[in-house]
Amino acid sequence: MNMDADALLATGRRVLRIEAEALAGFADSLGSEFARAVETILGAQGRVIVSGMGKSGHVGRKIAATFASTGTPAQFVHPAEASHGDLGMLTRQDVALVLSNSGETPELRDIVAHTRRFSIPLIGVASRPGSALLTAADVALLLPDAPEACSVGLAPTTSTTLTMALGDALAVALMERRDFTMEHFRTFHPGGKLGAMLVKVRDLMHTGAALPLVARDASMPDVLLEMSAKGFGVAGVLDAEGRLAGIVTDGDLRRHMQGLLERSAGEVATPSPRAIGPDALASEAVARMNEGKPVTVLFVLPEGEGPRAPLGLLHIHDCLRAGVA
């Protein structure tokens, strides 16, 4: 590594340490106003309206997005646009979360005044305890006095990291108070990798007439026809009560090639096949398929012990198409 690379690496490490130390200090100093902020948001009938100017505005957009995706309705309103009509987005049912490192940002005056005029709860976030924003706020969240990480001590670095982390802390506290579950999370994240990770087996499984099912005493020619017609490369074998007693796979056909067509489904089938419940995550199903000797199909059975009637069938290709595997 050359000298320039060494210097750059040292700078990167210094910045990370400065910000990490500031975050650790913030965690230690967080007080009762944080709890008041959470309770204030929980008590609102409307949304959290987040606002901030410049870098605080960029952070505010992220905080609003995090709130909205974790069960707390939220929207970012630009303070300059608010002064030209967008104040109408902030109603008596809402809570305002206003961000400003200095607490003296002039563009925030109209939105702060609007909250005071209409008795809208105001949560202020700033680093100066006597600032105009924190003085006006119903709940004042004070950022710690920590140095910016840049070489001139002016560019928003540590301060924006602290504000972002505070937004995350509020979002998580709200999630826990709302008993926000994985199912709720999936509702707000149907697309992309997150959505794929949270897809359930019941969302992907084949059901009804699509299932390749035969009776235990079915002849193997009938089993082969059913396997070919349904196209999954398997057939589920049912007992007299319609419960899954076994499965016939391509491997079973090869193992019983001698006199295959004279046998019954029950004689060829592998008993107690791997299965999964309908409410399991599809990612769990993929893991089950890959246990030991991999398989490509799982029958979906209701929860419980012993033989049960199949509800559906899941193929590895269904998971691949959904982006799960």
Rank of each mutant, 00 (worst) to 15 (best):
Q93G: 06
A37W: 01
G88E: 13
V201G: 00
S151V: 15
E303M: 04
G236C: 05
F67T: 02
L42P: 05
P144F: 10
T70N: 11
V59C: 07
I316K: 01
H114C: 04
K193T: 14
T135A: 15
K55Q: 09
A215Y: 01
E267G: 01
F67C: 08
L224Y: 00
V59K: 05
T72K: 12
S151E: 14
A22I: 09
T115W: 06
E241R: 15
A65D: 06
G167V: 13
D203T: 01
G323Y: 00
T105C: 04
T207E: 11
A44W: 13
L311N: 04
G60E: 03
L281W: 10
H317K: 12
G46T: 13
L281S: 03
A37H: 03
D6H: 08
F76C: 04
G191P: 09
V172T: 14
G323M: 02
T181Y: 06
N101Q: 15
A80P: 01
M1P: 09
E183Y: 04
P147M: 10
D138L: 06
T296Q: 12
A137W: 02
I18A: 11
D179M: 12
R202Y: 03
H58E: 08
E284T: 14
P190N: 08
A287E: 15
L162C: 14
D94C: 09
M205V: 06
G233L: 01
V112C: 10
A282I: 01
L23M: 12
K230I: 05
G323H: 02
P156Q: 08
L154I: 15
M175G: 08
V48W: 09
G57D: 04
E262V: 10
P310G: 04
R92H: 10
E176A: 10
A209H: 10
H256E: 02
G312C: 06
A309M: 03
T181N: 13
S228M: 07
T135E: 12
L166H: 08
G43M: 12
I247Y: 00
A7Y: 06
H206L: 00
A37V: 13
L301K: 03
A146G: 07
N290H: 10
D145H: 11
H256K: 05
R14C: 01
A245H: 12
V199T: 15
V214G: 02
L211D: 01
V112Q: 12
Q258M: 05
M1T: 13
M205Q: 09
K55G: 09
H317S: 11
G88R: 14
A235D: 11
I41R: 09
R116Y: 01
T157Q: 11
P302E: 08
P310M: 09
G251Q: 08
L253C: 11
E183V: 13
P190A: 11
V38E: 06
E107C: 07
D222S: 12
L42D: 13
G242Y: 09
F180V: 08
M53K: 03
F118W: 14
A209V: 13
G236M: 06
T296F: 00
A173T: 09
V300R: 02
L244V: 03
A235L: 03
T270S: 15
E267Q: 15
A137M: 07
R321L: 11
S127L: 02
T115F: 05
E241Y: 07
L134V: 06
